[in-house]
């Protein structure tokens, strides 16, 4: 194994992996984090900690990731290129590693115009693919981006995102190949609701042989309401929610709508699990962490395996 994180151990031993997501609080309240940790514990092999997601200020991902480590839940720290130049990125990586973080998701990051400080200056010194290269060189060569040796390496299990539903569709698998060649070990995709289109994407990915070089986790998530379904279907660029999903939510009796959202999520998990090249699921239940345990239970994803971790691996 490259790093010896629990996530890497689960994936490399051939188990169908489960990751979940925890959004840090819009404040310094530790209780919120503790509550969410307990909702996700035992459901997921690792839990993503978002980094100022949708460009809205929240507690920093490294601090929250560290709190997870302390509580015995393995984090996947997300890092975007929007708010940091190459100095800050590398500094934060060293700090996160020293605090026990072992999995990293490398993102370009949502543009600040969508967030709560649209007046801000953006950075984008690097893009996600260049960030992956930086993290891989840290691990494989023990050097900073400028080639200078590090005093004590930072060895991360390197994740990247992929959106099979953004345009141009034909270029998406080739762009995934760029992420793999940059050094990505695992991929977490955008939320999948259009399973046939995702199947076609995965077919192309497998034709390129990428599924043998990288673990691909399909992004899934429960929809809470008709409004949320419609909003995602019409107003979120790069999201593909078919009309039939919106209809299913609409037709469900009002008091059963959240159940229907969970039903759809469970069905999508069962369908993507059958698609060649899919190594796991990434469950994004944004501000609805309560739903994750039920989804995992009903999709037959529990209990989570306890893979043998190498000697000296992180907690």
């Amino acid at each position: 194994m490259k790093v010896g994180s629990r996530l890497e151990a689960v994936l490399s031993s051939g188990h169908f992996a489960v990751t979940a997501e925890l959004g840090p609080p819009k404040g310094a309240d530790l209780e919120v984090i503790g509550r969410k940790i307990e909702l996700l514990r035992n459901c997921a092999d690792a839990v993503n900690i978002t980094d100022n997601q949708t460009a809205v200020v929240r507690m920093c991902s490294a601090a929250v990731a560290h709190i997870l480590v302390e509580n015995g839940v393995e984090p996947v720290m997300q890092m975007t290129c929007r708010d940091r130049n190459r100095l800050a990125i590398q500094a934060d990586l060293l700090g996160a590693y020293a605090l026990g973080v072992r999995n990293l998701l490398c993102l370009t990051g949502d543009h600040q115009s969508f967030g709560n400080h649209p007046q801000s200056k953006n950075v984008y010194d690097l893009d996600s693919i260049q960030l992956i290269q930086v993290v891989r060189r840290m691990r494989e060569e023990g050097v900073f981006m400028n080639g200078e040796p590090m005093e004590g390496g930072a060895r991360f299990f390197i994740g990247a995102a992929a959106n099979p539903f953004a345009d141009p569709f034909e270029f998406r698998p080739l762009r995934l190949a760029k992420k793999v060649s940059a050094g990505a070990d695992f991929i977490q995709t955008q939320l999948v609701y259009n399973v046939p289109k995702f199947r076609e994407y995965m077919h192309r990915v497998c034709d390129l042989g990428l599924h043998e070089k990288v673990y691909i986790l399909a992004g899934v998530g429960p929809i809470k309401s008709v409004g949320a379904a419609r909003y995602m279907a019409t107003s979120v660029p790069g999201m593909d929610v078919p009309e039939e999903i919106v209809e299913r939510m609409r037709k469900a009796p009002k008091e059963k709508r959240t159940d229907e959202g969970i039903n759809i999520c469970v069905e999508v998990i069962q369908q993507v699990r059958e698609i060649p090249g899919v190594a796991g699921v990434h469950i994004m239940a944004i501000e609805w962490e309560e739903a994750v345990a039920e989804i995992c239970e009903r999709a037959g994803l529990l209990p989570r395996p306890s893979p043998q971790l190498p000697e000296g691996a992180a907690k």
Binding site: T108, A166, F171
Partner: peptide, 13 residues
């Protein structure tokens, strides 16, 4: 908008 050198990002639609 992100001056990306390895785009397009997921927001291209």
């Amino acid at each position: 908008a992100k001056s990306m050198l390895n785009g397009p990002c997921g927001g291209s639609q």
